[in-house]
Design a protein around this nucleic acid. Structure first.
Ligand code: MN
Ligand code: MN
Ligand code: ZN
Ligand code: ZN
Lengths: 142, 142
DNA sequence: GCGCTTCTTTAGAATTATTCCAAACTATAT
DNA sequence: ATATAGTTTGGAATAATTCTAAAGAAGCGC
């Protein structure tokens, strides 16, 4: 039997996490949090999470998946990765780190934050502050 | 009087450039090339170029603007900058360089290639080769 | 220039990702 | 239990981009 739904413990943990983010632990949010944070870090899109939820037997509308992803991002539980103009990726790894992006198949691979060093970033224009520095290493089949 | 259309010399130059890229110098392509390459490097979107063309009295459909931007990019005359999931930016600066991206108003500002150094990029997975390394410095009003 | 072939342009329809909306729910506080 | 404010949802609406097929223009040999 495939392990489809996250266990109760991780769901309770998810509910607690939501409460402390000021979000009501609704059935949908708890279930999505369970799917997102119960396992290793990974990358996803609204569509892929929606599909995963369906596969796990969780009924959620796509609109709610979008709402939830944005709320979780707002709350710092997810980060957004911009690598392709056509799709929005989200990342359960919110620490400072970078990515390989495979232009052939759209796959994202983490590069640990300590690995890469960016030097020489000029100071931003007056009145602006650096929010973050994103590095995308675009790769292709050799 | 505002200088609307590029002068004849730069249009001839544009036509030559197109021919050597294997593209027929049609009225539309020559005009767009004139708007794109006659001045300093800059960033643009399909919509903004389409609007600029209209203002200069050049009749071109939006579909042709999209086609042309892609063909020019293919030919190495433009590069594409991915910073926002909602819009596709193009850049007349095709040399190696990086960008500030202002999250407040969507403005792009060049960072010279020599300024930034990225160290520690791990080698890509077997069979893959690095196409390029993009650095986006996201800034916000302080 | 003429005719032929091939490439281009274009209006408008189609596609895709995402957001909006208003009505039907539901978590939480009292 | 009730009331209230926050949530979910199906479906419509947006917006950027691509597709289609028909009409137009460029290049070539004559
Ligand atoms: Mn990761
Ligand atoms: Mn889109
Ligand atoms: Zn990541
Ligand atoms: Zn640039």
């Amino acid at each position: 039997m495939a392990k489809k739904k996250p266990d109760k413990a991780s769901l309770d943990e998810a509910a607690a996490r939501l409460r402390s983010a000021g979000l009501r632990p609704t059935r949908q949010r708890v279930a999505l949090a369970g799917l997102l944070f119960g396992k290793d870090h990974h990358h996803l899109t609204a569509e892929s999470l929606h599909a995963q939820a369906a596969k796990a037997g969780v009924r959620v509308s796509l609109a709610t998946v979008y709402n939830t992803l944005h709320q979780f991002t707002e709350a710092g539980m997810l980060s957004q990765v911009v690598v392709d103009a056509a799709r929005s990726y989200f990342d359960t790894n919110t620490g400072a780190h970078q990515h390989f992006y495979c232009e052939d198949d759209g796959a994202l691979i983490d590069i640990p934050g300590e690995a890469i060093a960016v030097a020489g970033v000029p100071s931003p224009p007056k009145g602006m502050a650096v929010d973050r520095v994103d590095v995308v290493v675009r790769i292709k089949r050799a």
